[in-house]
């Protein structure tokens, strides 16, 4: 089933946030996605960021820097976002396996140039940030404190088909 995208956003203003920071290896002993819910971003040390805080709890979008999700192949990283209702990540770039895992789960890993990411992060610095995603027209609108910014993005036709299908299992099962 196709997921819902966009909503209140949290900014993680750093490059190279890795899968161990997103979900530490000690929780990989869980065999259901739901069991991961409380451990989201538990080991991420970032000024002003609280992994147990209300801001993360309310968020449905993550905005971050380059090479997001580097490290392990663990799909527990996209899953921990999924079970916390975060279906959209907007980053300057991704590690390959993390990006593929996002689309394979029917979620969105959007890439924007560094300057656009910086503009969104600046916009959300002292105000509640909201990101609306218009998937058919490949546009996002970031708004905070009455101001808003629009950006175009692109995703490959294959990745778009995975999002439409709800994930790679659904796509592959109907085709192979």
């Amino acid at each position: 089933m196709k997921k819902h995208f966009g909503g209140p956003a949290i900014c993680l203003d750093r490059d190279d946030i890795n899968t161990d920071e997103i979900i530490p290896a000690k929780y990989l002993t869980e065999v259901t996605k739901e069991a991961l819910t409380p451990y989201i971003l538990e080991d991420l040390k970032l000024e002003g960021f609280d992994p147990r805080g209300q801001k993360l709890k309310n968020s449905k979008v993550v905005v971050t820097g380059g090479n997001f999700g580097c490290g392990s192949s663990r799909e527990h990283a996209p899953w921990v976002f999924e079970v916390n209702d975060i279906h959209t990540v907007i980053a300057e770039s991704y590690a390959r396996i993390f990006r593929q895992n996002m689309f394979n789960c029917g979620m969105l890993a959007i890439e924007l140039p560094k300057a656009d990411i910086a503009a969104i992060i600046a916009l959300g610095r002292d105000a509640e940030l909201e990101v609306a995603v218009d998937l058919p027209s490949r546009k996002i609108e970031a708004s905070a404190a009455g101001k808003s910014l629009s950006f175009s993005f692109d995703i490959s036709p294959f990745d778009a088909a995975l999002v439409d299908a709800g994930g790679w299992v659904e796509f592959a099962d109907s085709r192979y």
Partner: peptide, 20 residues
């Protein structure tokens, strides 16, 4: 290539995997 669990699942079921 290292892959996530969904790629692994499709690999187990269908014997295929997608790459760029």
């Amino acid at each position: 290539a290292g892959v996530g669990t969904t790629d692994l699942e499709v690999g187990i079921l269908k014997g295929v995997c997608a790459f760029r």
